[in-house]
């Protein structure tokens, strides 16, 4: 009776977002590890050559300059210049080798290896279709595991993450929906899975996400008079 991961992924296709921005993109500019070690190496090389930066710059373009300032500079400058260059060269070579290629950005419907992620299937669904997604998993006999949120202040987004598991096959499925951070509204799935009731209430507590149609979003874990949402990244205690 249990469904295969591929089959389920296909059924999720119409609910998934068409294209998605990878989160967190703050990390994306980083994966250029090669120039990074070279830059500090050059910086250390510059102060080392006792006669200041002049010498290095002259050595860099030897053809253009040599005749004019020839008297003192050229001979000593030429000799220290190749030294730091030779010392620098092997340095960047070492860290470059272990740097693995950045993993491909996840797709809206992503099948994972369970051993790597602890998940079989992860889907980013349209924020208007979370209830349909819950119903889809309900018809396939999945059980609710957890509902939680995630804050991405730089992207002005909040994410709601729904975890599910299957008792017989042990399959783990998660789907997530993104909503605007300044007006966080999403439909409740507690009508489909009553177990989501508390999870959503807790998520409202921590992130201020408004689950439309939820029966009671009063403070749950937090004090009764709480107006703050502690898991937002800009929350300061």
């Amino acid at each position: 009776m249990s469904i295969s991961v591929e089959q389920l992924a296909k059924e999720f296709e119409p609910l998934a977002v068409k294209e998605m921005v990878q989160l967190p993109p703050a990390i994306v500019p980083k994966p250029a590890p090669a120039p990074k070690p070279a830059a500090p190496a050059a910086a250390t090389a510059a102060p080392k050559s006792a006669t200041p930066a002049e010498g290095a710059s002259i050595a860099a373009k030897p053809a253009a300059a040599p005749a004019a300032p020839s008297v003192s500079a050229p001979v000593p400058a030429a000799t220290p210049a190749p030294k730091p260059a030779a010392a620098v060269a092997p340095k960047p070579a070492a860290p470059v080798v272990p740097a693995a290629p950045p993993p491909p950005p996840p797709k809206p419907v992503q099948i994972w290896k369970f051993e790597e992620k602890g998940l079989h299937l992860e889907v980013t669904v349209e924020s208007t279709k979370v209830v349909e997604a819950a119903q889809l998993l309900d018809t396939h006999g999945f059980a609710i595991d957890a509902v939680t949120g995630m804050d991405w202040p730089k992207q002005e987004l909040l994410e709601v993450i729904y975890d599910f598991l299957h008792f017989e096959s042990g399959m783990r499925v998660a789907y997530r929906a993104r909503i605007a951070r300044n007006d966080p509204k999403i439909a409740t799935i507690s009508k489909v899975f009553p177990g989501a009731d508390w999870h959503e209430r807790e998520t409202h507590d921590f992130f201020g996400i408004n689950f439309v149609g939820h029966r009671d979003l009063s403070p749950f874990m937090l004090p009764d008079d709480a107006t703050y949402h502690p898991l937002l990244k800009d929350f300061k205690a």
């Binding site: 369970f114 602890g118 006999g141 999945f142 059980a143 609710i144 595991d145 957890a146 598991l165 008792f167 017989e168 042990g170 783990r172 899975f193 009553p194 177990g195």
Partner: peptide, 25 residues
């Protein structure tokens, strides 16, 4: 009911569902 609420552990196994994380995952 266990499925709808995500009950687990001995509560789930007392309801006839053979689920244990040590075996399932």
């Amino acid at each position: 009911m266990c499925r709808k609420y995500g009950a687990c552990g001995p509560v789930l196994r007392g309801s006839g569902v053979k689920y244990d994380v040590r075996r399932a995952e």
